[in-house]
């Protein structure tokens, strides 16, 4: 058998990607409504994780601001798509949510990306709390509400918008990784000072990438808000959405492009299964899975897959 065709990643990776995409796009035709809803949630986690990886993966800046941008998206939906009738078309609202998240990220990034290491992580986490508290204050003292209801949107529409965001995100992530911009971002993560002295405008590269990653988080938030139909500041700015992307990315493995994607997909599915099958022990089992991952798969799932792959094809294809 000719193994070279089989080995060539140029052929089978895009092929596989296309197959998965077709499978997803036609899901509402053969799958149940529950499947569509579940896939929407999984896609949401993938979007959060991969967009987190776009910035934090190569740059080494641990951002815990995901929940902030996600929440900004959720609130954009809540304000522009109230139950009494939409102000704007659904798709436009999603784009606006992405744009607002971008602006917030660029402003915050310009102020804070000079902070390094743990200081940056803590500040970004503080941002989630800050926006949440300001919003609570505003809702109580000005609008006199705590939560908001969102217009009902068709489940399939929600699914397809989420899928669209996912596709655009994957293309963006791929091109950033392959471009000179990606090389600059990596060099910042490896040695920021050397990058700056080699002509990289480090502040701009960091701020722009931070902004790009926030676009997708905001857009995903806007879409999922239509599914949740009721939100309040505690739901929208839940710090869990800052931590989950990090955990999912590590679970999948940061070494490979597809690592965070697989990690988020399996992680989200696992969460759903555990939550429905073992509602009382789900957090406990989940914790055990995480500890096991850290102990036995330090390179994440993809590390494990690669080891198996190398054994399968004879080992001469190290991680090229």
């Amino acid at each position: 058998m000719d193994m070279s065709l089989f080995r060539s990643r140029r052929l089978w990776i895009p092929g596989l990607a296309l197959l998965v995409l077709v499978g997803l796009a036609t899901l509402p035709l053969y799958g149940s409504l529950y499947m569509t809803i579940l896939m929407t949630a999984i896609l949401m986690y993938i979007i959060l994780t991969v967009s987190w990886v776009i910035f934090s993966g190569p740059s080494g800046y641990l951002s815990l601001a995901s929940a902030a941008f996600f929440g900004v998206g959720i609130y954009t939906s809540a304000i522009l798509l109230p139950t009494k009738g939409a102000v704007l078309p659904v798709l436009v609202v999603v784009l606006i949510a992405g744009a607002i998240s971008f602006v917030v990220a660029v402003l915050v990034g310009a102020l804070t990306l000079r902070l390094r290491g743990i200081y940056f992580a803590i500040f970004t986490f503080g941002l989630v709390e800050l926006i949440k508290q300001v919003l609570i204050f505003f809702e109580i003292s000005v609008t006199g509400t705590r939560g908001r209801f969102i217009m009902l949107v068709d489940t399939h529409t929600i699914f397809y918008i989420m899928l669209g965001i996912f596709v655009v995100l994957m293309l963006t992530a791929y091109f950033i990784r392959r471009s000179k911009f990606g090389l600059a971002l990596r060099s910042i993560g490896e040695n920021e000072e050397a990058a700056a002295h080699s002509g990289v405008n480090v502040t701009m590269v960091k701020v722009i990438t931070f902004g790009i990653s926030a676009v997708f988080m905001g857009a995903a938030g806007a879409v999922i808000a239509m599914r949740w139909t009721y939100i309040d500041p505690y739901i929208a700015f839940n710090p869990l959405f800052s931590f989950l992307p990090v955990l999912m990315a590590i679970f999948g493995g940061l070494g490979q492009f597809y690592g965070p994607l697989i990690g988020a997909a399996i992680f989200a599915y696992l969460e759903e299964v555990l939550l429905t099958k073992f509602p009382y022990y789900y957090m406990l089992i989940f914790g055990c899975v995480l500890v096991g991952t850290m102990l036995f798969m330090p390179m994440g799932l993809t590390g494990l897959i690669q080891r198996g792959w190398r054994r399968l094809i004879g080992g001469q294809h190290a991680d090229a």
């Binding site: 090389l183 990596r186 490896e190 040695n191 000072e193 990058a195 080699s198």
Partner: peptide
């Protein structure tokens, strides 16, 4: 410039370390 303690991009191939200078500097 170069640095007293070499500052290279350790996980990036040597050729790309150099290409970065050409691309951005």
């Amino acid at each position: 410039r170069t640095f007293q303690e070499v500052k290279i991009f350790a996980n990036v191939p040597a050729v790309q370390n150099v290409a970065l200078g050409a691309l951005f500097g």
